[in-house]
């Protein structure tokens, strides 16, 4: 049976090749646009820069995340996205290299297809941080998966596919350890479904990390790989 997904893809596990743009903004220290299909997020990074006295941390940079939808008003969901992104950045940015400074990231989302936007935002922020030259412990990538109403696992769903889904899962993995960097799942699902989503997401994130590498290589003009010990 050939599946027909709403955007023409035929494979439930097919990840749309993401489109990335580095440095679209001129004033920000670093910026990047990341898109899965039509869902795009623009992220900008200012930092390390001067920190407000009340936020100053003696041994690390203060990380602030601001997420605003570009259509409609901002609400509690955006605060949840900010919290998720900030927690990821707290564990990924080498913040102890920049004590008593602040690193601010701003994300603007082009459409409101909810959970897919979170994955795009995480990825755009990581790329923007790399563009700004802020040191990171690892490259972190995020994908979204759903279990649709016929209990099929669908990777990288379109906005229409998310609407009717039984459960939506946003997984984020780094490229160094086997740990989960972040997992946000909503809806109703079984533990077996959760495990299969986990595995599919993990390998999909690896391919997104390859896209990061390619994007950065395009910027700096190719990097010679060093043999790992």
């Amino acid at each position: 049976m050939v599946l027909q997904r709403s955007d023409g893809r035929t494979d439930n596990l097919q990840l749309r090749p993401p489109t990335t743009t580095l440095s679209p903004l001129s004033r920000a220290d670093g910026s990047a646009r990341f898109a899965y299909g039509k869902s795009a997020v623009l992220a900008a990074v200012y930092g390390p820069k001067e920190v407000r006295l009340r936020d100053e941390l003696l041994d690390s940079a203060k990380i602030e995340v601001l997420f605003r939808p570009l259509v409609g008003l901002s609400g509690t969901t955006e605060r949840l996205y900010e919290k998720t992104i900030r927690e990821i950045l707290e564990s990924v940015i080498l913040k102890h290299l920049h004590p008593r400074t602040s690193v601010q990231t701003f994300e603007g989302a082009d459409d409101d297809s909810s959970s897919l936007i979170l994955s795009c935002a995480i990825n755009a922020t990581i790329l923007a941080l790399m563009d700004a030259g802020v040191g990171l412990k690892s490259m972190v990538a995020s994908v979204t998966c759903i279990i649709d109403d016929s209990n099929q696992l669908v990777l990288d769903p379109s906005a229409e596919e998310i609407k009717g889904a039984k459960s939506v899962h946003v997984f984020t993995f780094d490229n160094v350890s086997k740990d989960v960097t972040s997992c946000v799942s909503t809806g109703v699902y079984t533990y077996e479904q959760y495990k299969s989503v986990f595995e599919v997401s993990q390998s999909a994130c690896a391919s997104v990390q390859a896209v990061y590498r390619q994007t950065m290589e395009n910027k700096v003009g190719g990097v010679e790989t060093v043999d790992e010990e």
Partner: peptide
């Protein structure tokens, strides 16, 4: 109209 803080370091949320 919203001036996103990403547009300039002078804009604050």
């Amino acid at each position: 109209t919203s001036f996103s803080p990403m547009a300039s370091p002078a804009f604050e949320a």
